[in-house]
Design a binder for these strands. Sequence first.
DNA 1: ATAAGTGCAAACGTTTTGCCCTAGC
DNA 2: GCTAGGGCAAAACGTTTGCACTTAT
Lengths: 139, 139
Amino acid sequence: MDIRPPLKMTRQRAVILEELRGVTTHPTADEVYEMVRKRIPRISLATVYRNLELMAREGLIQRLDVAGGPKRYDGDPGLHYHVRCVRCGRVDDVHGIPPVDLPQARLEQVTGYRLLAHRLEFRGVCPACRGAEGPGAGS
Amino acid sequence: MDIRPPLKMTRQRAVILEELRGVTTHPTADEVYEMVRKRIPRISLATVYRNLELMAREGLIQRLDVAGGPKRYDGDPGLHYHVRCVRCGRVDDVHGIPPVDLPQARLEQVTGYRLLAHRLEFRGVCPACRGAEGPGAGS
DNA sequence: ATAAGTGCAAACGTTTTGCCCTAGC
DNA sequence: GCTAGGGCAAAACGTTTGCACTTAT
């Protein structure tokens, strides 16, 4: 019931994973492609997409579906939340915050769903953008 | 600093808003298009997109960026969370749950961001899909 | 040896755009 | 009458897929 074929370790797979693990910028598939291309010039974008998707399913990495933009990928598979800057779009990790405690039983009661997980994303203004525009501007 | 030109009230705009307010299904732009088309057969998909986007910016409706799928729109502009069924993809409202209390000051300290908002989305199995497949199956 | 994985190019679904016409204000 | 808004068709965008070849196991 949980048997899956072991992942074949190809060079492209290894490099994709290495590159992703080496940054904390949560790149898009296209950005990963550009990073990997420096080491494997003939790699195809399709391979990058296929492997990112695959590794996300395997739990080796995380796929982030950020609001209003392409998917991003996170080399850190551990549980943590993210903040997205509403000005420049960058995504940062939120460490040091314990997983929020949700009234799961009550939620299941109210919705009728069997709950599996939740996704929490913060939005704000990153340090760089705060400095650039000053704290006075509200949208 | 907050002056924006008032919205011209056109027939297409009124109908889009009415239709969206009339359902709780969080339709995609294409689904809104089909709904509106019954009343304005010559409306274009582009108009639907333009107005949904515009109304979302104005705060008249909400845009939901659900993971791994097209954007959905919610005629209810008030604050509430959503649950998405991982089997069939439908999105339901979560009412009767107070906004979760987050350690905002600490978050700002840890991240360096000025926090503006958060987005919380639940994932689970909806009543219909629970019934259809039985409760024993885990992914 | 055999299946999984790759590169390439083409297809796909969603969303945006440019243009000229239409209609609110 | 002036300008925002609409219809249409084409383009852009991110992503997926079919196919023949390659490579890890």
